[in-house]
Design a protein around this nucleic acid. Structure first.
Lengths: 325, 325
DNA sequence: CTGAAAGCGCTTACAG
DNA sequence: CTGAAAGCGCTTACAG
C-alpha cells in the first residue's frame, strides 16, 4: 500500500495525496472534501508512509543520534531518559551508539551516525589518558549542511553547544561542607584521565580549600591507575575528609582504607547515588547527577540548532543536588 | 558525490559502479581493471553511499532495534553493551528506544521501530500490574516479511525466540545457600507486578524450601506496592534469611527493618551487584545479572532469525553468577 | 485548485 | 562482460 495506490483509489493525483497526508492541504488549497476523502482512505487501508522514501526526498530523518563514550550506566541512562522524554513531544526519534571507552570506536560511532543521516547528534566524549586531548573527528560528510553536534557531560576543545553539570560548584560546596564540619586534612580521589568534569570538581574543591587557608600538605589529590595503591592508602590514613570524584571510586578506597584507619570518623562525599548508603555506617553524603535534566537540555539544544544553525552557541550548566534520603 | 557521478568519472555505467561498490564485481564478471578503477575513484572522491537510497531499494536497513520497558539502568545498559559488542562484528547497527514502564509508550516504541524499518527487534517487555498479561501488539506492518522479534529478560505469552536468565536456578541456589547456613525462617521480598523473571526467582526459592520440608509459615512472601509497610516489617522481624528479588528492594527493606530487628544476624541475598556491599556489615551476597551475555545472545538470535525465518524457536537461558568481591 | 513529470540515489531485471 | 532503462516510494518545481 503506497501513495500511488491511494491516489488511484481516491481518483486524485499522487501530488494531492502527498500534500494531504503531510498536513499541507490548506497550504495548497486542496478542497476540504478531497482532503477528507484522502484521509479516510489512508485510514481505511492502514496506510503507513515509507520512512526511507520520505527521508530520501527531504534529506531529513527526524532522528537525533546519541553517542556515549562507554556502556550505558545509571548516569548515562538518565541522560537518555531526558533526551527521549523531550523528544517524545516532537517528531524526532533517538538512535543510540555506545563505545567502550575507546576513541576509535567512538569515531566509528560518529561516522555511522552521519551515515544514517541523523539530523543532529548529542555527544558524550571519551576521557583520554592524561595529557591527551580529544578532538572531534571531522569525517567527510555528504550532507549539504553541517550536522549539529551538541556536547554533553565533558567538554572538548572548540566552541560548540554544550550541556554540562555544575561540577565546579559541587566541588566548592563539598569543600565548604567539610570545612563547616571542622575537617582539617582533605583528600580528593580521582581517576588519572583527562576528563573535564572530574577536573572541574577537583578545581572547585581545591580552590575553595586554598582560599580557606588550608595548607597544601593538607589537601592532597590521589589519582591512580587501576585503583588504590598501598602508598596512597598510607597517605590517606590521616585524612578526615574524602571527596570521591565518583561513588564507585570512593567506595573502592574506603574498602581498602578501613583496614588501616577508622573510616567511620572520616567525612565523605562523592558524586552519584549509592544504594543503601545509610547501611554503611559512614559519614557519607552524595551528590545526585542531574542526568535527566541534562538530557532534556541537550535534546532542546540540538533541536534549536537544527532549526537555526546560525544561532550563538548555547552553554548550559545544570546544577548537582545533594542526594536526599 | 554519487554513484552516477562516479560512473561518469570512470567512463563506465552506473550498473558497474553499483556492482563493484557492493563487492559483487567477481559475481558479475567485471574485469579486475575496471573494478580497481572504480574503487580507486570512490576512494579518491570520498564516496559514501546513501544509506536511505540503498535501503529503499533493498528493503533492509541493517539495523536492529532494541526496545526497553524503562530507563536504561546498569542491567539494561549491560544488555545494550552485549548487543552492540556482537553487532560490531557485523554490518548491523542498533537503535534503542526506551519507555517509562508504560505499556502505551512501549507499543508506540515498537511502532516507531517498525516505521524505521529495523530488520529485527530485541524486546524487553514492561511488567504489568498483577493479573494483567502483556500481549505483544501486532501493528499493521508494511513489510513483505514479518519482522523478527526476540524477547529478552521477561517472557510474554506466545512462542518466540527468547533470551532469559536462570532465575529459577538462582532462586533454588539461594534457598540452598540459606539452608546450608542453618536458616529457619525465610522471606522472599518482591514487587507486586507480573514479571516472569521475578516469578521464576520466587518459584525456585519457595519450591526448594518446600522440598526441604520448611513449613509454609516459615517461608513468607512479601510483595507490596510502594515499598515496605509496617505490617510486613513486623512479620520480617523474625526472619533469619531474606531473599530480595532485586538489590534495591532488599536494601529498602533492610533500611526500615534495622530499627526493629538485628539485621546483622540475618542472611541476605539479592539480585544485582551492590557497590560497597562489604561496607554494610551485613551477611549479604548478591547475584550478578548476566546482561552482557544476554545481549550477545539476543543479537545472535535476531540475526539468525533474519537469516532463517523458518528455523525453530530459540530459547536461551543464561545463568546468573554469584558476585565475587 | 489539480495533474503529468522529473527527481532523490540507489538496485536490478532485461537486453546485447 | 557491460549498458540503457525501469523501479523503490516518496516530494516538488512546473504547467495548466
Amino acid at each position: 500500500m503506497n501513495i500511488k495506490e491511494i491516489s488511484r483509489l481516491c481518483g486524485v493525483s499522487v501530488f494531492t495525496v502527498s500534500r494531504v497526508l503531510n498536513g499541507r492541504a490548506a497550504e495548497f488549497r486542496i478542497s476540504a472534501a478531497t482532503a477528507k476523502r484522502v484521509m479516510d482512505m489512508a485510514e481505511k487501508v492502514q496506510y503507513r508512509p515509507n520512512y526511507l522514501a520520505h527521508s530520501l526526498n527531504t534529506d531529513r530523518t527526524y532522528s537525533v543520534g546519541v553517542i556515549f563514550a562507554n556502556t550505558v550506566d545509571n548516569y548515562l541512562g538518565s541522560i537518555m531518559e531526558g533526551v527521549e522524554a523531550h523528544l517524545r513531544g516532537t517528531e524526532y526519534q533517538t538512535a543510540v551508539e555506545t563505545g567502550e571507552n575507546d576513541i576509535r570506536l567512538q569515531d566509528q560511532a560518529l561516522r555511522r551516525m552521519l551515515h544514517r543521516r541523523a539530523d543532529g547528534i548529542i555527544f558524550y566524549p571519551v576521557a583520554l589518558p592524561p595529557g591527551k586531548r580529544y578532538e572531534l573527528p571531522t569525517p567527510n560528510d555528504q550532507r549539504k549542511h553541517q550536522v549539529p553536534i551538541v556536547i554533553i557531560g565533558r567538554t572538548i576543545p572548540g566552541a560548540r553547544d554544550q550541556i554540562m553539570m555544575g561540577d565546579f560548584e559541587a566541588g566548592a560546596a563539598t569543600a565548604n561542607r567539610f570545612l563547616e564540619a571542622g575537617c582539617k586534612r582533605f583528600a580528593f580521589l580521582t581517576n588519572p584521565v583527562n576528563c573535564s568534569s572530574d577536573h572541574a570538581r577537583q578545581k572547585g574543591f581545591i580552590q575553595t580549600l586554598k582560599q580557606a587557608g588550608i595548607p597544601a600538605a593538607n589537601r592532597i589529590v590521589v589519582a591512580e591507575q587501576g585503583g588504590p595503591a598501598s602508598e596512597s592508602l598510607h597517605k590517606l590514613r590521616r585524612a578526615d575528609a574524602l571527596f570521591g570524584v565518583n561513588s564507585g571510586l570512593l567506595l573502592a578506597y574506603v574498602r581498602r582504607l578501613r583496614a588501616l584507619a577508622d573510616v567511620r570518623h572520616m567525612h565523605m562525599v562523592s558524586v552519584g547515588d549509592i544504594e543503601g548508603a545509610e547501611l554503611m555506617d559512614l559519614k557519607l553524603w552524595t551528590w545526585s547527577t542531574p542526568g535527566r535534566r541534562m538530557g532534556e537540555e541537550a535534546a532542546r539544544a540540538v533541536l534549536s540548532r537544527i532549526d537555526d544553525p546560525a544561532a550563538p552557541w548555547k552553554n548550559v550548566v545544570v546544577p548537582l543536588e545533594w542526594t536526599t534520603a
